[in-house]
Amino acid sequence: MSSFDTSAWAGTLAWAGGAMAVVLLATFVVSKIVGKHAVIDTTWGLLFVTAAVVMAVRSTGDDTRRWLLLALATVWGLRLAWYTGKRSIGKPEDPRYEEMLDKQPGNGDLYALTHIYLLQGVLAFIISAPILVGGFERSSVGVLAWIGVAIWAVGLFFESVGDAQMARFRADPANKGKLIDTGLWRYTRHPNYFGDACIWWGIFLVAADALPGVATIFSPIIMTLLLTIGSGARILEKSMSKRDGWDAYAARTSMFFPLPPRVKKAVTS
Rank of each mutant, 00 (worst) to 15 (best):
L227S: 03
A197P: 00
P130A: 11
T84G: 01
F158H: 10
T224G: 02
T42D: 00
Q104H: 15
A52F: 06
V57D: 00
T27F: 14
V161N: 05
T27Q: 08
K36A: 07
D181T: 11
V54I: 15
W76L: 03
I199G: 01
V49E: 02
L184T: 04
D102S: 14
W200R: 07
G232E: 01
A145T: 01
G17V: 02
T27R: 12
W185S: 07
T268V: 10
R252T: 14
F158M: 11
V29H: 09
Y83A: 09
F125S: 02
L236H: 09
G230H: 02
S239H: 13
R186N: 08
P105K: 10
G121Y: 13
L227Y: 06
K32E: 09
V22I: 15
R65L: 04
W76C: 00
A266I: 07
I217A: 15
G230E: 03
D94E: 10
T216Y: 14
A171I: 01
S160I: 07
G183P: 05
P258V: 04
T216F: 15
A19W: 08
V34N: 00
D109W: 15
L46C: 05
L69S: 09
A8H: 07
P260L: 12
G245L: 04
L156P: 00
L47D: 02
S88A: 15
R189D: 02
I126D: 00
D209Y: 14
V267D: 06
P95Y: 12
W67A: 04
E98S: 11
D163P: 01
R96D: 04
A171S: 12
M55C: 03
L211D: 12
D163R: 10
K36N: 09
W76I: 03
T268P: 01
K242N: 03
R186L: 13
L24W: 04
V122P: 00
N175Y: 09
Y187W: 15
L236W: 10
F48S: 01
K242H: 02
E137T: 13
I235Y: 00
Y117V: 01
L205I: 04
R96E: 08
A266V: 12
T43I: 03
A215H: 06
A251T: 01
V53W: 12
V39I: 15
A145Q: 07
S239M: 05
A71R: 05
F194Q: 03
N192F: 04
S128V: 12
E99N: 09
N192A: 06
T60K: 07
G195E: 01
C198T: 05
G232Y: 06
H190N: 14
G134I: 14
G90R: 06
E159H: 13
T224L: 10
P261M: 06
K265S: 13
G213H: 11
A8L: 06
A73K: 07
A14H: 06
T43P: 00
G35D: 11
S7P: 00
V39M: 13
Y187V: 03
A150K: 10
V39T: 14
Y187I: 05
